[in-house]
Structure formats: structure tokens, C-alpha cells
């Protein structure tokens, strides 16, 4: 048997998932989102190389294709734009990448071990991130909407059947479909982190890998940012209200506070902050307080 090399196969898949099509760029998605995604694609490519999934040759080939859009994205965002979305260590690394001859020659001070995670688990992480890499729905609204645009969404309630049938392309139902997809993504990342912690050679190397991933990935929903957090909480409150006042669910005795607890858990994992809470009243009279 001579299967194509894992590196070649995965870099080709990476290019398909992480690289934008002209159609997507031309669509009505905020250009800042795509500029950030272009930079992020380079960071994921480097991570894949550092963890040993993409070899130097394949990484170099993809980097040659990405380099121009990486430079264009940096120019578009400017120093202030980069500072808003990426932490210091990533900004310093981006500076290295601008000057680097090859993707492999740019290095973080703390290098990750290539033995930190099972190869197939690593592939699945990249597949998970790649599956919705260019899905801007939640980030576009929560991070980039103007105040007026954001308020407009709440003139209507989300329609569950439209969300369920995949028919929501505009309005609040579309925002909500993106919100729910993101919740799934947070859950998948949490699962990956647990797998990482169970299999890593040390707790330190697992936590260091998680920290690195959050540093390059969390701009899509930066819950430490006050405005982003407030909008995410607003959507969560809308979700809870619809669930709490759904007759069928009420008849089944469903407790919306369990839903809030699960979302808080996912947020805590996403941010890496175990103390993270949303602190929302539960519609229908039940009330949760912080850490309650």
C-alpha cells in the first residue's frame, strides 16, 4: 500500500479549508474578518508544522501561496488592528514571520513537542477548525456589527424550525444558527483539549498547547472583551428565554438552568478561565447568581 503521505494529504486539505475562495471574500462578510482569518491561517499552518503534522516541504509550499495574502492582511489591519485581536506573544511571532525565509524558521520561544498528541487526534483538531474556518456568522455580528446593526437583529425572534432545517440565511434565525454552530465548535474544542490532557507526555505540555491554540484562535469570540461578552450574553439570554417559554419543553419539565450551566462550562473551557460565569436570570422566575 502506498497512501499519499499524511503531510501532503493534510496540507492539501488545509489549503481547501483555510484558504478563502474569491466568492467568500466578495461576499458581504466584514473584510476585517477575512484579514484576521488570513493571518490566523498562517498561524495554524505554523502550528501544524511545529507539531509535526505538516513537513517542512509541504508547509513551505502552502506558505508560498499564503504569503501574499498574509502580507496584505497585515497591511489592511495595521499595528492597531493586530493588537486588538492577538496577544503580545502572537504579535511578536507575526513580526518574525514577516521576516522569515521559511515557515519552519520562525519560532516561538517555547516550542511545543511533536509527541504531544496522537497524529490522528491532531488531524481531527485541524479538521474541526477547518470545517468552519471561513464561517463568519457569529464573529461578524458579535464582534463587528455596529450598535445599530446589532439592535436590528432583535426586532424578531429566532425561528427554531428554520434553524433546524438549515433554512435561516438572514435575520435573527441566521445569527442564531451561527451561535449554535459556535457552541458546537466550543464543545468540539473542549473535547480535543480533554483528549490532549489525557494523552500528553506532561500536564505542562498539554496546557502550553491549549494556551497557544487559544492565543491564535480566540479572537473569533473574545469573551474577555467587554462588548463581545455583552453581545454573547445577550444571545444566550435570548436562547434561554425561547427555551424557557417553549410549551413543549416546559411540559417535559426541562430546566433551562442546566442549559446555562453547560454554556458557562463551555465558555470557561474556551477562555481557559475556570471562574468564568455569565450571571443571567433564568426566565420564569428561577435565578442564578455568579458561581451559583
Amino acid at each position: 500500500m502506498k497512501p499519499r503521505s499524511q503531510s501532503r494529504r493534510e496540507t492539501e486539505r488545509f489549503e481547501l479549508s483555510f484558504t478563502p475562495t474569491r466568492l467568500e471574500v466578495a461576499s458581504n462578510v466584514h473584510r476585517t474578518f477575512h484579514a484576521l482569518a488570513d493571518i490566523q491561517a498562517t498561524l495554524w499552518l505554523h502550528l501544524g508544522n511545529e507539531l509535526g503534522m505538516f513537513d517542512d516541504e509541504d508547509s513551505g509550499r502552502v506558505w508560498n501561496n499564503l504569503r501574499e495574502q498574509f502580507a496584505g492582511a497585515l497591511q489592511y489591519l495595521g499595528r492597531a488592528g493586530i493588537s486588538r485581536f492577538f496577544p503580545d506573544e502572537v504579535r511578536a511571532f507575526i513580526g518574525q514571520l514577516q521576516r522569515a525565509d521559511s515557515i519552519a524558521s520562525a519560532r516561538y520561544a517555547q516550542r511545543l513537542s511533536t509527541r504531544i498528541i496522537d497524529t490522528r487526534g491532531l488531524e481531527m483538531l485541524f479538521h474541526e477548525v477547518g470545517a468552519q474556518f471561513r464561517d463568519a456568522t457569529l464573529t461578524q455580528h458579535v464582534v463587528f456589527d455596529t450598535e445599530a446593526e446589532w439592535e436590528d437583529h432583535f426586532e424578531e425572534e429566532p425561528n427554531a424550525d428554520a434553524i433546524l432545517n438549515g433554512g435561516a440565511t438572514t435575520g435573527m434565525s441566521a445569527v442564531f444558527a451561527g451561535y449554535l454552530r459556535f457552541i458546537e465548535h466550543m464543545g468540539a474544542m473542549a473535547q480535543f483539549f480533554r483528549q490532549l490532557e489525557e494523552g500528553a507526555e506532561s500536564n505542562f505540555s498539554a496546557l502550553e498547547t491549549e494556551r497557544r491554540i487559544r492565543a491564535i484562535h480566540n479572537w473569533r469570540l473574545d469573551l474577555h472583551d467587554t462588548d463581545t461578552r455583552a453581545r454573547f450574553v445577550h444571545l444566550t439570554a435570548t436562547f434561554l428565554r425561547n427555551v424557557a417559554y417553549d410549551d413543549e419543553l416546559a411540559g417535559l419539565g426541562f430546566d433551562p438552568s442546566s442549559l446555562l450551566a453547560r454554556i458557562e462550562f463551555l465558555c470557561a473551557d474556551w477562555t481557559g478561565d475556570s471562574q468564568f460565569t455569565i450571571n443571567l436570570p433564568i426566565p420564569g422566575g428561577r435565578r442564578r447568581t455568579a458561581n451559583g
Partner: peptide
Amino acid sequence: LITGWKGVL
């Protein structure tokens, strides 16, 4: 049968 918010969940 999976519809409504029950179906979403």
C-alpha cells in the same frame, strides 16, 4: 419526531 426548540436541542 424532532422539531422546534426541542429539535434544536
